[in-house]
């Protein structure tokens, strides 16, 4: 396989959410991160991360544990507050409003609104165990956007069909396998019709034989043109699906490029050491 340039493959359709009224123009990048710093106490986890993700692009973030890749992902939807730097998603600064030379943190409701446009999938699924699969999917659209129950239910049914779990609509999460739960979690995030999807090690908590189903759903999602940022250790997925692979180490991006280049022919010693260890 030859190195693929970073721009989108031609067969990928345009971003389906671009038609929605958004501040960012259809051509501007989906995510722009500028000199992002994050400290936990004295431990500086992110030491100035710059990253741009184009619309429809799939970026896979790899790196040793503690390298800051998950923290960076969580900064993108303001689950973690950045200490310095800025992140734009869809043309809006996440979590803040810039007035003069100051970034003022937005109100809780405004941040919640922003987050609703950014889907997130967690390592441990975090489905709501006291709700059925359907209620897990329709809860947020109904609360956040006051969406009509019938309409959201119809959308939820379509999404559950897409992840192959149409028949589990009335089940409770605990009655599902890990792989099924994670696919429900993906459908739940999609039910808000996000313009960006974040995946935080979505297959790390799964039994090996269940990983494939979840990756297949993510692959379909990528093929449909969704913009995705994925933290994972699945090198096969990175090679097949990613437009770009980003290698994190000690809070900075060490290397970034097309998957075949980063994974097969890494330029930096630290990347090489890491890749040798995960193989």
């Amino acid at each position: 396989m030859t190195a693929v340039p970073t721009d989108r493959p031609a067969d990928r359709p345009a971003d389906p959410t671009a038609a929605q009224p958004t501040v960012g123009s259809a051509k501007s990048p989906m995510v722009i991160a500028e000199r992002v710093h994050k400290k936990f106490g004295l431990n500086e986890v992110l030491k100035g991360v710059d990253l741009t993700i184009d619309r429809g692009e799939v970026v896979v973030m790899i790196g040793p544990s503690g390298s800051g890749k998950s923290t960076f992902l969580r900064c993108i939807n303001h689950l973690e507050r950045v200490d310095a730097g800025r992140i734009w998603v869809d043309g809006q600064v996440v979590g803040y409003e810039q007035r003069g030379h100051h970034l003022h943190e937005l109100s809780e409701r405004a941040i919640a609104r922003q987050r609703a446009h950014i889907g997130m999938v967690f390592q441990h699924f975090n489905l709501f165990p006291h709700m059925t699969v359907l209620d897990n999917l329709i809860e947020a659209p109904r609360r956040v956007f006051g969406a009509d129950r019938e309409e959201v239910t119809a959308r939820a049914e379509v999404l559950l069909g897409k992840v192959g779990l149409r028949d589990k609509i009335k089940a409770y999460p605990r009655h599902l396998s890990g792989g099924q739960q994670q696919r429900v979690a993906i459908a739940r995030a999609l039910c808000l019709q996000p313009s960006l999807m974040l995946f935080d090690e979505p297959t790390s908590a799964l039994d090996p034989e269940l990983v494939g189903d979840v990756l297949a759903v993510m692959k379909d999602l990528a093929a449909s043109g969704m913009t995705m940022a994925v933290v994972t250790h699945e090198m096969g997925f990175a090679r097949d699906v990613a437009d770009r692979v980003v290698f994190f180490d000690s809070g900075v991006i060490v290397e970034s490029g097309p998957p075949d280049q980063v994974i097969l022919d890494p330029q930096h010693e630290r990347t090489r050491v890491f890749l040798r260890a995960v193989r």
Binding site: A116, A140, A185
Partner: peptide, 27 residues
């Protein structure tokens, strides 16, 4: 209640009050 529940609810755009009432307290 597992902290992940709070995170998932936040990521879905629910406010703290909604999260407490709909997600945390019922559990």
């Amino acid at each position: 209640v597992d902290h992940g529940q709070q995170e998932a609810a936040s990521a879905l755009g629910l406010t703290r009050m909604e999260t407490m009432r709909r997600i945390i307290l019922p559990q």
